[in-house]
């Protein structure tokens, strides 16, 4: 089934195509819905819940929910904002996110969404995890303490690189990113140019030798908040690295 339908987001009528997700339709119409685990070019994952909207009054993940005729969607409401703030807040305190010296600062989607939502300080207590780093790969550095378990690298490796470098182990609070190798990252077939390396929204997967090479003022989110590019129709949520 294909064809155009109309739906309503925050009282505004937009056009969408049957088969699109709410997120894709909103992007195309220049409406920004915050997201973290969704990335253009990858299959949707629906895990972070940052993109939650109300569809005819019921919460749905915009990145996985297909559009349907007659949908009335709420995106920017105080209740949804509070929900997103709470989710982002938990991601911050679950990891060690020291923006002040993280090389991803200014290019980090977690930081950028937090700024856009006006988060200044966390509401929950920091958990200060100790998940370790992996420096074994000649071109890639991994800081597990910054991983937000979005699964973008897992999918990018499979879907874009045709490899299977990353995977998750454990459940719930014990869930961790790991690699398909006995000991460390250098034993995988990950290459420095792999798309998986660029897919990480935070400073958990880093390409060695690139840190701080973009000066302050010219980084991705230095001059306008994340989502501005969608609202001005310049581009969709392609990751630009």
């Amino acid at each position: 089934m294909s064809g155009k339908i109309t739906l309503i987001i925050d009282g505004q009528e937009i056009e969408a195509e049957i088969g699109q997700t709410i997120l894709d339709a909103a992007d195309a119409a220049g409406v920004y819905i915050p997201r973290l685990c969704a990335m253009k070019g990858l299959s949707p994952h629906g895990s972070c819940r940052v993109c939650t909207v109300h569809v005819n009054g019921r919460p749905q993940a915009a990145c996985t929910q297909p559009v349907a005729p007659g949908m009335s969607i709420e995106n920017e409401t105080p209740e949804l904002k509070a929900h997103r703030v709470s989710v982002i807040d938990m991601l911050f305190v679950e990891g060690n996110h020291y923006c002040m010296f993280c090389e991803k600062s200014g290019n980090c989607e977690l930081q950028a969404v937090a700024y856009r939502l006006g988060i200044l300080a966390p509401q929950h207590d920091y958990m200060f995890p100790c998940r370790g780093v992996d420096a074994s790969h000649p071109e890639v550095f991994i800081d597990g303490n910054r991983c937000i378990l979005c699964g973008r690298c897992v999918r990018a490796s499979q879907e874009l690189d045709n490899k299977n470098v990353f995977q998750f182990v454990g459940r719930g609070i014990h869930k961790r990113l790991t690699f398909n190798a006995p000991n460390n990252l250098s034993q995988t077939d990950l290459a420095g140019i792999d798309k998986a390396v660029d897919s990480c929204p935070v400073g958990a997967i880093l390409r060695k030798g690139t840190a701080f090479s973009v000066p302050i003022g010219q980084r991705l989110y230095d001059n306008e908040p994340i989502g501005s590019e969608i609202e001005s129709g310049r581009r969709t949520n392609d990751r630009q690295v």
């Binding site: 002040m100 010296f101 090389e103 780093v133 420096a135 550095f141 880093l206 060695k208 030798g209 840190a211 701080f212």
Partner: peptide, 14 residues
Amino acid sequence: QGRPFWEVPVTIQR
């Protein structure tokens, strides 16, 4: 200790 060396000029100034 254990942090990547390229981070140090930014970290250490704190």
